[in-house]
Write a protein that binds this DNA or RNA. Structure first.
Lengths: 337, 337
DNA sequence: CTGAAAGCGCTTACAG
DNA sequence: CTGAAAGCGCTTACAG
């Protein structure tokens, strides 16, 4: 029946050993409240020597805090999304750890947020980071009615007011990449796109359209293939695009892009000789492709770091910006030569 | 300065509202201790109606438990590993959630386990699941000296005694796949292999060798390329293997396999016409490859579920098996036709 | 500058 | 069957 965990030394033990009160020990550790320099140093020395670590749980209970944040990860995903989430997590963990916070993981499917609900009901966290949002988002509804501090990675639909969002500037990025391609005299651009329920898809689409407007060109709606979210649909779209003589295929994300490339390979269509290809996202999956793929470049870890820092500020009651947009790079490679 | 979280209803509130003691309320909820049926039902009804949820943190403090488990995820990984970790996580979360436990995530690099150390020092979890182990493993050393209950996903080196391990039967699986290939009259098998510091690599190697022994064939050490853990090394190994007329390339994991396939593509070597290919692991990355790749098939989610269940038993002081081996399948596809 | 005491929201012997 | 009280390990007014 032994739990295995050693009986731990508590604040009472060090107080007794030093002949001071628990209050004093607590003050020495937290640095709050007046305390004599000498006393504080004695306490600190003892703590150091005996390797005392405060019980964060108890501390949290006394302060009505948990020193945990929840990050919710989508339960449905494409392989290529995974590296993005992972990178974000690295960033979040780096900041959280440095502030003595830990990460509670919640996996939520679009129609099942029970894991998140339980965590909130159980008072296990001080705030939440949403790694993906939908145009209609149950998670946001829930968190807002429960009044839980949260931030989203990626932008949220305009339906939601007052949501703190940390995102890359997808619209500008897509606009810039599209513009560059248009400038290269590829006029027949086929756009093959991801899940329209993801807010980011909308931003990308907007950037794409704005590029056309800016360049004074009109886009061919027959070359727009949205919501092609599986291999079969992508294959059909690619064939259709080729039939219509598209000279460039723009992929709205890397899941789409890897499917497009696969289809082209099967069809023995050469990139960039027969058709150019570019992606509105960047990922490790495409990193090693032959030929290398023109794409945007975003720093997902940075996104995680900023999101975490913002959430922590928020839980402390600090003022935070509603929308933070991080920069991007356009990376031109062989696939659009 | 508003924390945002509503003031929550506590056990004291419901006790007062019902004119009973906190003890009684507590008993009604936990089901422990004697309590009148009618009283219990009154309490339960009130709780239900007012949507009272016990504060798990406080409960944990009183019981010296946290209702959290830590899962440590490797900080260095190949893209193809990610789906494995993700699947495991799904399994872990499913079981943990059903037992009202949550997952605290720790990301550890081989030489930096500070995140895990902090979580343990802070008493934040009741036990730990290690998602990857090394032949020399700091994490295990640490957890053992701290006397923290833990289980590993994957086997651990024989250097460590008494470690609870949940694994697929890699050795048998590799032995079986290798045997099948040998039976198909491919005698010149090139083995291109992953990180030798991972315990699983050793198991795979053993299975490979045993297959040769069983079939009464001698293996060609010149066709064994171990620790080829980047694109450059894999390329060299593939070329060397082709030079030596290998008729099948066996990849020790999918990271290697995707690199091998890439190299073969670049060299315009056809699979399976010019050389056969098979992998000692299965992943979503290879799922869509053309041609389809012969590989082993393991259920990572199941692994996570069993690991979590075992850890929970362990923290409760129940007897658990030191080593649990889950079954596998051999999936023959076009690449070894 | 320091300490006794109450409190965070639960559980659990102990007594009745 | 039920309750008063002590305890889990901290923090924090309040008083001195």
């Amino acid at each position: 029946m032994d739990k295995g965990l050693e009986k731990n030394i508590t604040i009472a033990d060090v107080a007794e050993a030093l002949g001071v009160s628990k209050t004093t020990v607590s003050r020495a550790i937290s640095g709050k409240g007046r305390i004599g320099r000498e006393t504080r140093e004695r306490v600190l020395a003892y703590i150091e020597e005996h390797d005392y670590k405060p019980n964060v749980i108890a501390k949290g209970l006394a302060q009505s805090k948990t020193y945990n944040i929840c990050v919710v990860m989508p339960g449905e995903y494409d392989v290529v999304d995974l590296t993005f989430f992972q990178e974000c997590l690295f960033g979040i963990q780096e900041i959280a750890g440095s502030m003595e916070y830990d990460i509670l993981l919640s996996i939520c499917r679009k129609n099942d947020i029970s894991s998140l609900e339980r965590i909130i009901a159980n008072h296990k966290v001080d705030g939440v980071i949403l790694m993906r949002t939908f145009v209609e988002d149950e998670q946001i509804d829930f968190l807002q009615t429960k009044n839980v501090p949260f931030v989203t990675i990626g932008s949220t639909s305009a339906n939601y007011k007052g949501v703190i969002q940390i995102d890359h500037n997808h619209k500008s990025a897509c606009k810039e990449l599209t513009s560059i391609i248009l400038m290269k005299q590829m006029d027949k651009i086929a756009l093959i796109g991801g899940n329209e329920e993801h807010v980011v898809t909308q931003s990308r689409l907007r950037g794409f359209r704005e590029a056309y407007a800016k360049m004074g060109k009109t886009l061919d709606e027959d070359l727009m293939f949205l919501s092609q979210d599986n291999q079969v649909l992508v294959e059909k779209a690619v064939k259709e695009a080729l039939n219509r003589q598209a000279d460039c295929i723009l992929c709205m994300d890397d899941a789409v892009c890897s499917r497009v490339l696969k289809t082209l390979r099967q069809q023995h269509v050469k990139v960039p000789e027969d058709v150019r290809v570019a992606s509105f996202y960047n990922s490790m999956v495409l990193e090693n492709n032959v030929p290398s793929i023109t794409s945007l470049s975003f720093d997902a870890k940075e996104l995680g770091m900023v999101a975490c820092r913002t959430l922590l500020d928020l839980t402390e009651g600090l003022e935070v910006k509603e929308r933070t947009l991080l920069p991007y790079e356009v990376v031109l490679k062989e696939s659009t030569k």
